[in-house]
Design a protein around this nucleic acid. Structure first.
Lengths: 337, 337
DNA sequence: TCAGGTAACGAAATCGTTTAAGCCCGTTTG
DNA sequence: CAAACGGGCTTAAACGATTTCGTTACCTGA
């Protein structure tokens, strides 16, 4: 491994001079700089991030916390998209990405300790159980954090528009003539609560009555539970004309159930999903859904975190709302007389 | 930040003693150890991975290279599953995971340089363009690497059974009476080549003739291209009775195309996918497919890499084959008279 | 009683890099 | 002409941890 020391010996200058030359300090002669840079390239010198981190207290490494109950949240395209754009933006700004976990090896640590242990400059937190005290400890710590779809006190967060999404969907199906709209929602989280409230509020504002039994629980990303909810909806005396699913993938369960009953989409039943993942756009009929801009969320999270790291003084915590987009597919029938 | 020095002062011993006590050396008195450990806990001491890495030359951090042309390979469930289990196993063995990229910040490096820069102890390489010289440079370097679904010289690799998969599928549909079997394959990679050869070889061994035009190219994970290939197959004078798709997700494109032609699965056409992702198991009819054991692949990759890192002397490079499993769904009809 | 053994701990170097402070010397300025 | 200045470098300490040798002090056996 070629180090600054090797270069300094080769060039007949001190290590300090080499360091400064390589880092663009102005108190080194132009030709000395040129020579040092040339020799460095010749010898194949690479800076050592570890030594730098130790000395400077900055690692240029950010941690990500992406764990849900079912292992990592990575299997959900929404989260893997976020991670992807987060990674791209972070790298563009000179930061690497490391996963943060509990219990590394036989050493048991919590998230906060792990982050300190690895000297991460900051952390992005998504897809976790925000009721976990270990998560809260990290968010509430002195370490810069950005949370996704969760607001904690006065910390920076990036939020999908969980109010606008359901609202847009309800407004759209309303325009298409639907008045009997059912809503299948995911597990009880703050995201779900927001969507649920938005659904009810929008319905109320449009003068739509939501009958008992039209709002049913299921589990995100679980077609089976959405299938069951669908079956229950179909058994109601006054069937809905439109069903909103908790997410695109869960819709598959509903799709199967409807097919089993010989109910055609959208002729006999209108449906819409949520997320706008790739799948929703390749299904036929194309699924009407609300696309969350995962790419923007990841990018924004990285950008805000790096900002918080690099300008701790001037950087105010903020909640950033990333709006999504209604994708009008072919699964909502226009039933206006 | 509380360091070993702080503890040493508090306990009235030297830093060396603290370090040894914390690391379980035997040349420290039992009660001294007890006291040091107690004080360390009291003061909230955390080891500093950076300092340790610098001193020991071992980071307990492994890099992952998961990039395909379309951004990261993360959007494909096969790869995100691998990454997930890789992460779990690595963490269990005391290693963290960092993404390796080109061009970190304005500093441009290749993969090898990035790995050295971050002092990663080893790298897992998957889902990349193996014809990229930068990838080859990394694989061929002195850094321990494990490649997935790619064999390079005498390096360790973990391989999905790309011979057994197509073979199992062909045998199965053969048993179900099919003799006119079409095969849509992905882009030209070593994986594709193996599957293609396996398809042809298995057909030959079963005495199945593969007519001109029954083998068609498409793109992995791209329903559109598989849809086109499907349309072409349907236009043939002697239509196949069964179509094998490059992967489960691509099958969606075929499904749409078949539906458009009013062709019912499996009554009018039998189909099978590849991968065994979640989607394939929630579709109705359930997709017949060959499940790649992504979980085992990630786990094995981590295990082998850590072994190579920790026992460089006794650890031989090896190719590990992870076999998958035929999932008999409901999309292949038994057409035996 | 004394050589030799051992248990318990410390001094100091080291990993690769950065940086505050200082030094030397030629040039400018009052 | 002396003092002040500044460009260009160097010295040395520091970041936090580990480890190789010592160095004690105490014990044991002959």
């Amino acid at each position: 491994m070629v180090t600054i020391k090797d270069i300094s010996e080769r060039c007949g200058v001190s290590r300090a001079t080499v360091s400064k030359a390589l880092n663009g300090h102005t108190d080194i002669g132009a030709e000395t700089i040129a020579q040092i840079r040339r020799v460095a390239k010749e010898m194949g010198y690479l800076p050592n991030a570890t030594a730098r981190t130790l000395k400077l207290g900055r690692s240029h490494n950010i941690g990500v916390l992406f764990v849900d109950k079912t292992g990592s949240g990575l299997k959900h395209e929404y989260f893997s998209s976020i991670l992807d754009s987060l990674k791209v933006e972070a790298e563009r700004r000179g930061y690497d990405i490391t996963f943060i976990s509990k219990d590394i090896g036989e050493f048991s640590m919590d998230y906060y300790e792990h982050t300190k242990y690895r000297n991460c400059d900051g952390v992005v937190i998504a897809s976790v159980d925000f009721s976990d005290p270990a998560v809260i400890r990290l968010i509430a710590s002195e370490i810069p954090t950005v949370t996704l779809d969760f607001v904690y006190d006065n910390r920076t967060s990036v939020l999908s528009d969980n109010i606008g999404g359901p609202s847009a969907l309800v407004h759209y199906v309303y325009e298409m003539g639907h008045r009997r709209i059912a809503f299948i929602h995911g597990e009880d989280t703050s995201v779900t609560q927001k969507r649920l409230i938005s659904f009810h509020k929008t319905c109320a504002s449009l003068g739509i009555r939501v009958p008992e039994g039209y709002v049913r629980p299921a589990i995100y990303h679980d077609p089976k539970s959405s299938g069951i909810a669908t079956r229950e909806l179909l058994a109601l005396p006054d069937r809905p004309t439109c069903i909103l699913y908790p997410d695109d993938f869960s819709f598959i369960g509903g799709m199967n159930e409807l097919e089993r009953h010989g109910i055609s989409i959208p002729n006999d039943m209108s449906v819409a999903g949520y997320d706008g993942i790739l799948l929703s756009q390749v299904l036929r009929p194309r699924l009407t859904t609300y696309r969350q801009d995962a790419e923007a969320m990841g990018r924004e999270a990285a950008a805000r975190l790096v900002e918080a790291i690099e300008q701790p003084k001037t950087c105010l915590p903020q909640q950033i709302m990333i709006s999504g987009q209604l994708l009008k597919g072919d699964t909502v029938k226009d039933i206006n007389d």
